[in-house]
Write a protein that binds this DNA or RNA. Structure first.
Lengths: 191, 191
DNA sequence: GGAATGTATGTAAACATTCACTCACATTTT
DNA sequence: AAAATGTGAGTGAATGTTTACATACATTCC
């Protein structure tokens, strides 16, 4: 018995949803197997351990974020359209898979533990570089890059969190323009 | 055998630190007992269960936030000094006990599940009321109150998160003025 | 003043359950 | 036939919690 050749993908989807809702520690391998409709043993045909599953899930999803952010940054457009593109990108990712967004958001620190703080594949580092560049060009006010990164990220991420917890009536993508304006205002963009 | 009359407080402090660092599910009652320097049985002299400990910890800490925010809001000062006071208040709380700040931040949704979304003791609801008032008075730009709440909260909270993860060189209280300015700019305060 | 007693607090060991994971075997796919 | 994939029962370790018993300290009674 083994219809459904996409078992690995179904395991990933089920685990992602459960991890996002109850946390990795709060989710058992039994929970995952039951959600997929398969026995625990089958899980281990595709992943060496629960930890490896959690890590694979994180790396694949996080990698998408990092690549998208770096691509937008590399275009080196003026600051306002760059911010607009970043906001739209993050919220498109949220719309496409809120579970993945929540999971990456919540577990990033656990999994990024080893990664260099300014590694090119680090999303926060890429954002900081974007802001540092804008600062160097005089497109935004001078200031502590780490702080300004936190401010900008907070503006983008918090509406998504509100949406996850049912505190926003619409998905954050509906507010992309307003959020972009808020970021530009908060970082003191010259317009 | 039983010196140390402050066992309950020591249990709370140890549990809070462990919960903040590894999560409630990631922390065992044995971990807590070992950190306190007592046996597991002693834990159950003071708390009926691990869940009750987690809940008591949350409610006592969260209550302080709610009371502080509501107090500042009730003064009904003009918007800019109100925001400044709120930012200082949050960051003073962070400085006083980063573990408590992190724990409340991360677990609020789990514990607030039952609470009415606009209950007076709900911190986010109190912030939303503050912003709605300012909007009604024409002190800030018109807009979706839920979204504006998310923006303001994101600006305040994210620097604290950065600090917790070692991404900010100084505690957020050092940036209180800049964060206040960013909030005022982001919500379109007339100044 | 000192034995008796009640209560709060601690210990050490055990408890049933759940955990992540493994293995021998069956079935399907190639 | 060989490789890949799934099953179902099982493993030992770890989990939250309870238990039987011990100690400290305050109060009460003679």
């Amino acid at each position: 018995m083994s219809r459904a050749p996409d078992t690995r993908a179904r395991i990933e989807a089920a685990a992602l949803a459960l991890f996002a809702e109850k946390g990795v520690d709060g989710t058992s391998t039994r929970d995952i197997a039951k959600a997929v409709g398969v026995t625990e043993g089958a899980l281990y045909r595709h992943f060496a351990s629960k930890d490896e599953l959690a890590r694979a899930l994180f790396l694949s999803r996080y990698g998408g974020f990092a690549a998208g952010v770096e691509e937008i940054r590399a275009k080196a457009e003026p600051f306002p359209p760059t911010v607009a593109a970043l906001v739209r990108f993050f919220y498109a990712a949220f719309d496409a898979d809120p579970d993945a967004f929540a999971y990456v958001l919540v577990t990033q620190h656990d999994h990024l533990g080893g990664m260099a703080a300014d590694a090119p594949e680090n999303v926060v580092a890429a954002l900081a570089r974007t802001l540092a560049d804008a600062m160097a060009r005089g497109e935004i006010a001078q200031g502590d890059v780490a702080l300004v990164s936190a401010l900008a990220l907070g503006l983008v991420v918090q509406p998504a969190i509100f949406r996850l917890y049912g505190r926003l009536p619409q998905p954050p993508s509906a507010y992309a323009e307003e959020v972009t304006r808020a970021v530009l205002a908060a970082v003191g963009a010259r317009m």
